[in-house]
Design a protein around this nucleic acid. Structure first.
Length: 281
DNA sequence: CTGATAAATTGCTTTACGTCA
DNA sequence: CATGACGTAAAGCAATTTATC
């Protein structure tokens, strides 16, 4: 067996199940998922480091999980009982846990800090309660909310600390923050939607009012309905000399008296360019 | 029993980083 | 040495499922 394979895959056999462990840094999470979703015995390599016989391997009937842990690096004194104990706890707890990934195994590895006997009894207890979908206590929620208020995302250290503080698995903290962000986003979408609805209604109302105004004006005298621009004397309209682009009106006394030529019909050139189009202003 | 809600899962994308040609 | 292609890990998100109240 390739050393990499040995590192990646170890099998704990016994109690009628198989358990595969992947060392961290060997496969991406997606690959873990792909692997754990495949019920393909070929991928399960008998672990020489565990000293397991091929017959024992073949007799195993269930794959209870795939996980990632550095704890079980090749060469370390990992025992079959250690692995099978963890695997059996997963098997007994929930069928969905059979599909859970490296995170569960990391957690399982952490549990090993406890004594074996204590651990077995604890896990048995966990299987009936904690491994089911957890309803967080008010106190836990309060602490999580407080933390979320401070920062809506967690770095690994914060996650670990919070998990320790709440006696939860880091994954649970992670999931809570994920769902919390989703809830906040949903709430914001609802607020935005309401705001847009109100704005839409206001615009609809304004449109209705303007339509009425138009109807009212149309029903009045033609002079009243004449476009505003047509009612302004042409001499007061601003014009621009196309040559020097100066703006002015022929009667605008703020401009030089000779700004515009007297004959607008001939050209809109100012007087300077009217008499000499190539002249500079 | 049913619906609402929250915990958990799954599949995907993005980003960062290391390796190699 | 610089660079781009490629693979991998990690993190986050959207959508969905599942358990609980």
């Amino acid at each position: 067996m390739e050393s990499g394979d040995a590192c990646n895959t170890m099998l704990a056999l016994g109690l009628g199940f198989r358990y595969e462990l992947l060392s961290s840094g060997q496969r991406s999470e997606n690959q873990h998922r792909t692997l754990r979703d495949r019920d393909d015995d070929e991928r399960l390599l008998p672990s020489l480091s565990l000293g397991l016989s091929e017959a024992a391997y073949q007799s195993a009937s269930k794959i209870v999980g795939i996980g990632m842990t550095d704890k079980y690096a090749p060469g370390e004194p990992t025992t079959l009982i250690d692995l099978t104990r963890e695997a059996s706890s997963h098997l007994n707890c929930s069928s969905t846990m059979k599909r859970s990934g490296e995170r569960d195994l990391q957690e399982a590895a952490e549990l090993e800090k406890k004594s074996m006997m204590m651990m077995i009894s604890d896990e048995d207890e966990d299987c009936s309660t904690a491994r089911k979908k957890l309803r967080l206590s008010k106190e836990q929620i309060s602490i999580l909310e407080g933390s979320f208020k401070a920062h809506s995302t967690l770095n690994p250290e914060q996650k670990e600390d919070l998990a320790r503080q709440l006696s939860l698995r880091p994954r649970q903290v992670e999931v809570w923050f994920q769902n919390r962000r989703a809830r906040i986003k949903l709430k914001q979408i609802e607020v935005d939607c309401e705001s847009l609805k109100r704005r839409c209604e206001a615009l609809r109302e304004e449109n209705r009012r303007l339509q009425e105004e138009v109807q009212e004006l149309k029903s009045q005298t033609p002079a009243a309905t004449m476009p505003l621009l047509m009612q302004i004397p042409s001499t007061t309209l601003p014009v621009m000399c196309p040559s020097c682009e100066r703006i002015g009106t022929r009667s605008d006394d703020r401009l030089p008296t000779r700004f515009f030529s007297s004959s607008v019909t001939k050209s809109r050139l100012c007087d300077i360019h009217f008499s000499n189009p190539s002249a500079a202003c």
